[in-house]
Amino acid sequence: MAERERRMSPPFGGVFLARSEVLSESDMTRALRRIAHEIIEANHGLDDVVLVGLQTGGIWLAEAVASHLAEIEGVQPPVGTIDVALYRDDIGLRPVMPEAVTHIPVDLTNKVVVLVDDVLFTGRTIRAALDAVTDFGRPRAVQLAVMIDRGHRELPIRPDFVGKNLPTKRSEAVDVHRGGVDIGEVQK
């Protein structure tokens, strides 16, 4: 989720207070490396694979996965970024601002698009991302990689590659950053 949305809107409008660490930095590196292997395995290589990171939390994760892929296979797939704000279904219900300019480096028609995000929660961001991706062509397949699947889905969406399944309460918040993953609460 975009930083600015996080600051402005419930349940994120407030200060994140970490209660405990879920993944350390090295745990996360291992998870990213496993996800890279799984992407290669599922697609029998990297032909036609394009990684697309979701603003803002998915951007650096997509780059991290891409560099693992390059290490393993010797080629790096194209990496794009997408801001789904203009496709969200809650425009008008809460503040929604695009965070950064979308950059899709290749036509996505007949490509295998791997969406990358930090936390999978209700699934609504991914729903918006699926609509956004379609505006850049007709991919052969779209797959989803997330660092944390915290449950509470409101749409029929499931991830293909998961760093960690983390049962949470709705009231809790999950923060994925370069130093690891924390669970905690948002102090309003």
Binding site: A85, L86, Y87, P98, A100, V101, T102, H103, D135, G137
Partner: peptide
């Protein structure tokens, strides 16, 4: 700042978003 986002949208093959 926001205009940069819409410059990119306008440059797409399908220059339309469902925002409004």
């Amino acid at each position: 700042q926001l205009s940069h986002t819409f410059v990119e949208v306008s440059a797409r093959a399908i220059p339309r978003v469902p925002a409004l």
